[in-house]
Design a protein around this nucleic acid. Structure first.
Lengths: 249, 249
DNA sequence: CGAAAACTTGACCCAACTCAACGAACGTGG
DNA sequence: CCACGTTCGTTGAGTTGGGTCAAGTTTTCG
């Protein structure tokens, strides 16, 4: 990895949206040894049950999702990650991994030594704070998902997920002009919101018929953002995208 | 707060289940200024939308739950906390709180200055690690709840929650001999697993009729732990109760 | 160009919800 | 200590949102 590493600068870029970093912090990150790795769609990036690997990876490009399996064999996608997200923060400090992470699109990850990252987090306060914010935002999103799956009907769940995507993609710097390319199959959408692919299909149609969205293949255009917000009971608060602006303690 | 504070030693006790602490770490914790506060059932301990308070509290005794409200007015309980749990880790580093925390039983909390706790976490590696583990376990439980609510039927959801209670109560050192006092109403149970109180009632009856549990009022006895585990598709892995035993990096 | 995967649509079904009424426990004040 | 209101729990009857099954159609990709 060369000295002006564009890979680790992705990590810096992300952490800077979580907390302010000083020059030394950035230097420490850039000094981290890391390995670039590629995965094809459906490949497992993190596997359940395994003792945590000796490294911790974050996404340089592409999308990936975290899933758990129920005894019945059905699957629940519990989170979706994009450029800049850490994939196994859990395994940075926990002894077991209790879920899988799978590539959704072709994914490039940067693997950082577990020990090196732990040391960084435990020794540099600014980086620690940024990582804390990141982990806590993760938790906040999980809570919103529990609400989404537990207390909203099909239209609400799907609309909410689509709204979340729109904002997260924008935040991750992906092309987005009033619409975006849906990164997953309807089966996977269903697994994310606790519905069947069949019902996701009907729900998308219903949203389209109502003029809230327009669809062409996987391409999605928001025709009525406020309408979607209303149907999905969506408020961006839980994404905590505004952590840095207000100078914080 | 006297020098051999039994309140802050509760915090030490909890953190020691998350990572090893040295004598200096314990001393630093005991030196923390803190205020004891009491809440009656249904009282709000943390309120949504508010900018985070200047302090951060953890539970000394009693139970509390975290909830979010949907637009429809329905409620989702996203987590339940007992002795030793931090109540607003999120607000330790985030600028907004997007949920409420309410007392379930009479609750005593210890309030610790936000800044003081931040400094502690950012300056003492062993404490930082323990807090990290705590936060990451929290996240792990949320993921399991997403699965529970998204992909299990009523019996599975309720059984799973009852199993989780049993283990968490034992871990928190509450009396438990094959059974325990259910700490919440059937309405609240329903709000935790995404069901109606009516259906929770029927589900409990069904579990009892099958000989898996016995109920008397709110008192619950597990007659068939393995059966409950099977119905609830329960594996304790996600609770990460074994963090400390295996000497970890 | 052919096979597999993803998407659509229809018909039917069932788990969980709603509505409603009643009984049991609990707390409060007289 | 008892009367009484309120909350909690229980049960029934009827409804419905979303699941299941199944058959097409379109897209993707090798």
């Amino acid at each position: 990895m060369s000295s002006d590493d564009p890979i680790l600068s992705k990590m810096i870029q992300k952490l800077k949206t979580r907390a302010q970093l000083g020059a030394e912090d950035c230097a420490a990150i850039l000094a981290l040894p890391c390995v670039l790795r590629s995965y094809e769609p459906t490949a497992y990036i993190v596997s359940e049950g395994a003792h945590p690997k000796s490294h911790c990876s974050f996404i340089v490009s592409g999308l990936a999702f975290r899933q758990k399996l129920a005894a019945s064999g059905s699957r629940q996608i519990v989170s979706i990650h994009m450029t800049g997200d850490f994939l196994d923060l859990p395994s940075l400090f926990l002894n077991r991994v209790d879920h899988n992470v799978q590539a959704l699109t072709p994914v490039q990850t940067a693997e950082i030594g577990r020990k090196a990252l732990q040391d960084l987090v435990l020794s540099r306060p600014a980086i620690a704070k940024a990582m804390w914010v990141d982990a806590l935002v993760d938790g906040s999103i999980f809570r919103e998902w529990v609400l989404n799956v537990g207390r909203r009907d099909a239209r609400g769940r799907v609309a909410h997920l689509l709204c979340e995507f729109a904002l997260k993609m924008k935040a991750a710097g992906m092309p987005e002009n009033g619409g975006y390319e849906l990164p997953m199959t309807q089966k996977q959408l269903g697994d994310a919101v606790g519905l069947t692919s069949v019902h996701v299909n009907r729900t998308l149609r219903s949203l389209a018929e109502e003029g809230l969205i327009e669809r062409d293949r996987r391409h999605l255009v928001f025709k009525d953002w406020d309408g979607m917000r209303a149907v999905g009971d969506f408020s961006a608060l839980y994404l905590h995208l505004d952590q840095v602006e207000p100078a914080d303690a």
